[in-house]
Amino acid sequence: MDLAVIVLDQILTSIASLILISIGLAVIFGMMRVINLAHGEFIMLGGYTVITSVNAGVNLWFASLVLAPLVVGAFGFLVERTIVRFLYGRMIDTMLATWGLSLAMVGAVTMIFGNTTSGVSTPLGSMAFGRYELSNYNFALMGVAIVTTAALWAALRFTPFGIIARATMQNAQMVGSLGVNSAHVYAITFTIGAALSGLAGGMIAPLSGVLPSMGVQYVAKAFITVISGGSAAVAGTLSASTLLGTLDTGTTFLTTPVFGEVSLLIGAVLLVRAMPQGITGSLFKGST
C-alpha cells in the first residue's frame, strides 16, 4: 500500500515535469508552428536565473515563480523581434536560426558561468510515509503544473487575448481585417511561451542543478510530447504527458530508469504511428 502511494507520487511528479517542460513549446510550436530548437536553452536560462538570484539572496519561490518567467519572457520577446519574426512560415530557416540561437546561448552561458554544475538545495524537505520519504517539492511541482495548465487553458478559452491568439494562428489575414495587428499577437504569444519555459527551468533547477548544456535533455522530450499530443496545445500536452509520464515511471519501477526513458520514447513512436496527427488530431478534436 505504501509502495502504491510512492509510485503514484513518482508518476504524478513525472507527468508534472513533462507538462512543465513541454507547455512552453506547446505554445510556440503547437500554436505558432515555430520549431524552436533553442527550447531547452530557454529552460536552462530559467534555471540559471533562479540559481544566480538565490545565490544573491533572493527568495527561491520568488525567483522561480516570478523572476525566471520574467527574465526568460523578456529574452523571448527580444528573440522574437530580432530573429523569429522574419522567419514565420519558413520552417527550415527557423530550425537553423533557433539551432544557432541554442548554440549561442550555450556558448554565452559557458563564457559567463563556466562549465560546471551549480545548484541550490531542494526546499520544503520531505514527508515520511510509512517506510518511505516523499519529497514535498514534488507537490510543489504538481501544483505549479496544474495551475499553469489550467491558467493557460482558461486564458486561451476565455480571455479576449486568448481568443484573438487562437484566431490569429488559424487565419492571420482574417484577424487582420478585423483590426488586430497579428505581428503583436505573435510577439506576445512567443513571449508567453518563453516565459512558461523559464518557469519550467526555475522549478526544475533545485532538483537537478544547472549546467550550460542541460537543455539538450529537455528539448527532445518536449518536442516528442508536444507532437504526440497533436494540434491542441493544452489538451494535447496534457494527454501526451499523462500517457508518456505514466509509461516512463511505471517501467522505471519495474526495470531501470534507462528502460523507463526508453519505454517513454517507444511509447511515443507507437502513439504517433497509431495516430499520425497526434492524440488531439485523432481524438478530442476541437479541444484547445
Binding site: D93, A97, L101, A104, G107
Partner: peptide, 20 residues
C-alpha cells in the same frame, strides 16, 4: 578566442537572416 559554440551560433543566425 570566444566560445566556439557562441561564434558558430551567431554565424548560423546571421546566415539565415542574410542567405536563407
Amino acid at each position: 578566442w570566444l566560445n566556439p559554440n557562441f561564434v558558430l551560433g551567431i554565424i548560423l543566425i546571421a546566415f539565415v537572416l542574410l542567405m536563407p
